[in-house]
Design a protein around this nucleic acid. Structure first.
Length: 420
RNA sequence: GUGGGUAUAGCUCAGUUGGUUAGAGUGCCUGGUUGUGGCCCAGGAGGUCGUGGGUUCAAAUCCCACUACUCACCCCA
């Protein structure tokens, strides 16, 4: 039993598996570049107040899931529980709204913390890739965000995924809907679960996706947001759907999709997988036209999403997708004796200057053991360096895939030619 | 926060109605070549049986508590 363990809900990425993350990150950068999103990096910690305002005081995230503490200067600090609030703070603090709009940013491997009970696909620290698109109220912005997520997932060959979307209205129409919904829920008050009785007043939308059967039944008969959208919201959604259709992106309209963050307006969407257990959302996002103002900036529309990288990796794993392991070594130099050991080291040093990936013996193994080790670590070629080779200035290079040997002079230039 | 499951070698797991030095596979190290990988064979190292208590002549095994892991609720990436 190890003396120390990683804190509950955190996960190490072992050296043997980091290539998977690097592959994902490279693929993401490739895609995002085509749309002109630029990478932004914000602190892991923010003032707690930012999330109270941004995410919303009545949300579960704020009420029970944040890692909040007082620093030595008595400031209340919180480990970021989601990606958007920090980006918005940066947008406002640096007056990015004063630039020509839109402002298109993404973040990658952004550590995100929520104090929850871990389970399949749910950690206390996970990492998000996300995109934020500021300064456009047009549905083309929503569509680009969804396109980025969708392109990433399809380029990886993921299947079993569903894009679900909905509109939850805007300040013009949502209050009317809230009233209609509250009125309806009050009529069915006795049938609601205890949390929903509270939610009815604080955040009635959330009652719609309550999983308690009795609440679901009531929710099924509730007035639908779709029927209460104002003209603008209606048109916005129709235009977005048209763009998605045009791109051939399949989606489902889910009138019960509401999401747990308060800042969303109009478009909300999720991409869920049927292969990763009950925590099925791989990607979630939407439009947040009031958020920049809420954080103290000028009115600026925005839309974006967060995508859970651990969950994405889970999808790939569970659907049998293999990420190709990169070649670690082009050449392993087996050495026998002190002279050869020294020579192997210097030869490796020369070869590395030319970009070759080279390894030598560092633990004093026998020749046979060095061969075995070279095979195990996936060296593509092996060169044996002993008394004969040192004397002749020549050696054989063995290609491990088929065992063929070629002669080479003992200098970097010649060796390089034989290990390509 | 609530509920279920699990905990034995680095890893995946056996372990009989409670019985003497706790096993397998795999991985690791060594040997079968005097200087050559994969397959095969032989040997070796490696275990406070999650922790603490209890029952018993005797506990990996039965009982209790705790902890960790895990799955689900909730919520979400």
């Amino acid at each position: 039993m190890a003396a120390f363990k990683a804190p509950k809900g955190t996960k190490d990425v072992l050296p043997e598996q980091s290539y998977q993350w690097q592959f994902l990150e490279a693929r993401i950068r490739e895609i995002v570049k085509k749309y002109g999103f630029l990478e932004a990096r914000t602190p892991v910690i923010e003032h707690t107040e930012l999330f109270l305002r941004g995410v919303g005081e009545t949300t579960d995230i704020v009420q029970k899931e944040m890692y909040t503490f007082l620093d030595k200067g008595e400031r209340s600090i919180t480990l970021k529980p989601e990606g958007t609030a920090g980006i918005v703070r940066m947008f406002v603090e640096n007056n990015l709204f004063a630039d020509a709009q839109p402002t298109k940013m993404y973040y990658l491997y952004s550590p995100t913390f929520r104090y929850e009970r871990p389970q399949a696909g749910r950690l206390r620290e996970h990492h998000q890739f996300g995109v934020e698109f500021f300064g456009s109220s047009k549905p083309t912005a929503d569509a680009e965000c969804i396109a980025v997520a969708s392109e990433l997932l399809t380029s990886l060959g993921c299947d079993g995924l569903t894009v679900r979307l909905n509109s939850i209205g805007c300040p013009a129409c949502r209050p009317h809907y809230h009233e209609a919904l509250k009125a309806y829920l009050r009529e069915h008050y006795d049938g609601l679960c205890e949390t929903c009785k509270v939610r009815l007043e604080t955040n009635p939308l959330r009652v719609l996706d309550c999983k308690v059967p009795s609440c679901q039944e009531i929710a099924n008969g509730a007035p639908a947001i779709g029927d209460h959208l104002c003209g603008e919201c209606r048109e916005h959604q129709a235009a977005l759907l048209e763009l998605l259709d045009g791109m051939g992106i399949r989606y489902e309209i889910d009138p019960r999709l509401v999401r747990g963050l308060d800042y969303y307006t109009k478009t909300v969407f999720e991409i869920t997988s049927e292969n990763i257990g009950s925590q099925s959302a791989v990607c979630g996002g939407g439009r947040y036209d009031g958020l920049v103002e809420e954080i103290g900036g000028p009115h600026t529309p925005g839309v974006g999403f967060g995508l859970g990288m651990e969950r994405l990796l889970l999808v790939l794993e569970n659907t049998g997708m293999q990420i190709e392991k990169p070649v670690r070594y082009d050449l392993y130099i087996v050495s026998m004796g002190q002279e050869a050991e020294k020579r192997a080291f210097l030869l490796a040093s020369e070869l590395r200057k030319s970009g070759a990936k080279v390894e030598i013996d560092h633990v004093g193994r026998s020749v046979k053991a060095q061969m075995k080790y070279a095979d195990k670590i996936g060296a593509r070629h092996v060169l044996v360096l002993g008394g004969d080779e040192l004397a002749n200035g020549e050696a054989k290079i063995k290609r491990m895939s088929d065992g063929t040997e070629t002669n080479t002079a003992l200098n970097a230039e010649h060796i390089l030619k034989n290990i390509v």
